[in-house]
Amino acid sequence: MSDALSLAPEITDLLADPQADRGAESLLSKARKGQRGVIVRVGGQTGRSESIDPEELERRLLEMGFVEGALFEVLHEGLFGRDPIALRIDDMRVALRRREAAAVTVQYEEI
């Protein structure tokens, strides 16, 4: 298994160089198993009415380690609707529903 920490150099290089092609931004809720990259924005809006208060969601995501600049990799997906997802966030493993993952914007590693 690859260690997410070993991704650090390439990705931080990408971030450091504004000219580099950073790859398209996307919502974490659309990520598929095996995809990895860096978290670029954490908000609280999921675009779904049944989600909790955006400000509260943002804080909870931050507290679980979803912060701008954190590296992520999608490790596993659930059976039904590929939901929830298990992620590596820096050096932690975290489970999350796609509903809430929609509040996190990510940028995939260039392949």
Partner: peptide, 14 residues
């Protein structure tokens, strides 16, 4: 209780 849906968010420990 059609209100908000509690997020499912948790650490998967070693």
């Amino acid at each position: 209780w059609r209100g908000t849906v509690e997020p499912f968010m948790m650490e998967l420990p070693t």
